[in-house]
Design a protein around this nucleic acid. Structure first.
Lengths: 247, 247
DNA sequence: GGAATAGTGTCTGTTAGACACTATCTA
DNA sequence: TAGATAGTGTCTAACAGACACTATTCC
C-alpha cells in the first residue's frame, strides 16, 4: 500500500465513497397467504432476505440491501453491525465479510466502493424498524425477490446466496439461525431450507454429532405430540474456516 | 449503501484512503546459498512471496506488500493488476480478491482501507523492476520473511497463505504457477511445495486426471535422463468456485 | 394400538491412500 | 544392465448415503 506516487507521501483522502452493505439472511415461516400450512401442521421454514425500500433517487421505490457510509472511526465489521441496527433494528448472530464490489459505474452519483457483509439472524420475532431514508423494510423469500433491485444489488445477493449454500456444507454455521438450544430436527430443517435437499434424519444426526460442533444437553423438549427430542447446544468456535482473519 | 443520513443525498467523497495491496506468490528454486541442490540434481521448488522495501516513513526500510491508491476510473481488479505491473514489472497468471482490511488504526497517516488481492505468478525468469518509492524488490521464501513487515502486512500475508493452502485442496489453481504445458511431476511439485506434504505419484495422477481440470497432450518431454513424461494442458475454466462473483 | 418423530444398526458403493508392480527412457 | 522416473493394478480403511429397524411419546 500507500505511497502516493513518487513525490511526497502526505495523506489525503480520495474523491470516493466507501460504504458497507449487508445481506441479511434469516429462516422464517413460509408466507401462509402464498401457500397454506402443511397438513401435519408444522411450520415450513424458508430462507428469507431483508430488503429496504428506497425513499429517494436513484432507484427511488426500488428495493435494496441495507447499508451506508463507513464512519472514520469504526472498523468495517462494526460498520456492518451498525448498519444492521440502524436500518433494521436487528442484531446479527453471525456476521462475515463477503466481498468488496467496486466497479467504477456501479453508482451513478460517483465512485462508490462497497464492502459487503452477510449476516445470519435468528428467527425469533425481532421487530423491524424502518430507518431514515427508507419507506419500508421487509423480509422476502430468497427465491422470490421483488422486481429489479437497486444498483448491482441483485448480483451481490446472488453471490451471497451462492456462498451461504456452499459454506453451510463444510462450516458449522447453521445453528446461527437458531436459538441457543435447539433440536436436531430444527438444525436439519435449516440445512434443508438452505440447500433445498432432504437429509436422512439418522445420517444427519451421526454426521453432525461426529463433527463436534454441537453437544447434547440434559434437557428435552416437553409437551410435543411425539417422542421428546434432546436439546443441543453449539460449541463456541471462532476458527479461520468459519470467519476471516483474526482482525 | 447510499443515503448519507436522512437529509439530502448529494454525493461527496470521504476523508478516507482506499488502496489495493497484492500478495504475490510464485514458486521458485530454493536459494542455493541457503542449501545446496539435491544430490539428484533437480531443482527444489519453494513457495515465495514478493515484497518491496519502503523508501520513506512510516516503516522506512521495512519490507511491505506492493500496493497503492485506487484510481477513480479503474475497477478494483484492474487496480490490483496495475499495482502488480507498476511496482514489480510482473504479470499475474491468476488474480483473486482475498479480503478487505479496514481497522481504523492500521495506517498512522489516516484512515486507510485496503482491498487485498492475491496473485499467482509463473516461475519463468520475469525481471523485477523496483517502482518509485521503493528501494528494493525481492522474492522471499514464504516461511522466512524478513523482520517485521510494515503496517498489518504480516497479518495479511498470513491470511493469504492460509487461503492459498486451503484453496489448492479443492480448486484447480495449481497449474497457474506453471507454463501452459507441464508434466504431472511439475504439477505435483507445486502441490507439495504449497501444502508441504508428499503426494504419491500414482494416486496424484489418477486424482488430477479424474478431476477433468487438465488434459494430456500428444507431446512429451524429450532429452531427459529417464522415461519421457507426457505434457498436460489445463482446461480453461472460470467458475465461481475458482474466483469471486462474475463482476 | 396408531401415528408420528427420535434414534440405532447395517449394508453398499465410492473414495483416499498405501504400496507393489510394470514400462520406458538415458547413460 | 543399472538407475531413475512414468504410469498401472490392487488392496484396505474410512466415509456418505440408503434404508430397515427399534424406542418413546401423545392421542
Amino acid at each position: 500500500m500507500n505511497q502516493a506516487n513518487g513525490k511526497t507521501e502526505e495523506f489525503v483522502g480520495s474523491p470516493l465513497s466507501l460504504t458497507v452493505d449487508v445481506v441479511i439472511f434469516s429462516l422464517r415461516p413460509r408466507d401462509p397467504l402464498q401457500q397454506p400450512e402443511e397438513p401435519g401442521g408444522e411450520v415450513l421454514q424458508e430462507l428469507h432476505v431483508l430488503l429496504i425500500q428506497r425513499a429517494r433517487p436513484p432507484f427511488m421505490n426500488c428495493w435494496a440491501l441495507p447499508g451506508g457510509r463507513v464512519r472514520p472511526d469504526e472498523s468495517l465489521e462494526q460498520s456492518a453491525a451498525r448498519q444492521l441496527a440502524e436500518k433494521t433494528g436487528l442484531r446479527a448472530a453471525y456476521l462475515e465479510q463477503l466481498y468488496t464490489f467496486g466497479r467504477p459505474e456501479r453508482d451513478s452519483r460517483g465512485r462508490t466502493v462497497s464492502v459487503v457483509y452477510y449476516a445470519l439472524v435468528r428467527s425469533d420475532k425481532q421487530e423491524l424498524l424502518a430507518g431514515p431514508g427508507t419507506t419500508d423494510v421487509r423480509w422476502f423469500p430468497a427465491d422470490r425477490l421483488p422486481g429489479p433491485l437497486a444498483f448491482d444489488h441483485a448480483e451481490i445477493f446472488g453471490y451471497a446466496l451462492f456462498r451461504l449454500r456452499n459454506k453451510i456444507k463444510y462450516a458449522n454455521i447453521a445453528f446461527q439461525f437458531l436459538p441457543p438450544t435447539f433440536t436436531l430436527s430444527q438444525l436439519r430443517a435449516v440445512y434443508e431450507a438452505i440447500t433445498d435437499r432432504k437429509e436422512d434424519p439418522g445420517n444427519f444426526k451421526r454426521k453432525v454429532e461426529a463433527s463436534g460442533a454441537i453437544i447434547k444437553t440434559e434437557a428435552r423438549v416437553e409437551g410435543g405430540r411425539h417422542r421428546p427430542p434432546s436439546l443441543y447446544r453449539a460449541i463456541v468456535q471462532n476458527d479461520l474456516l468459519n470467519r476471516g482473519p483474526a482482525s
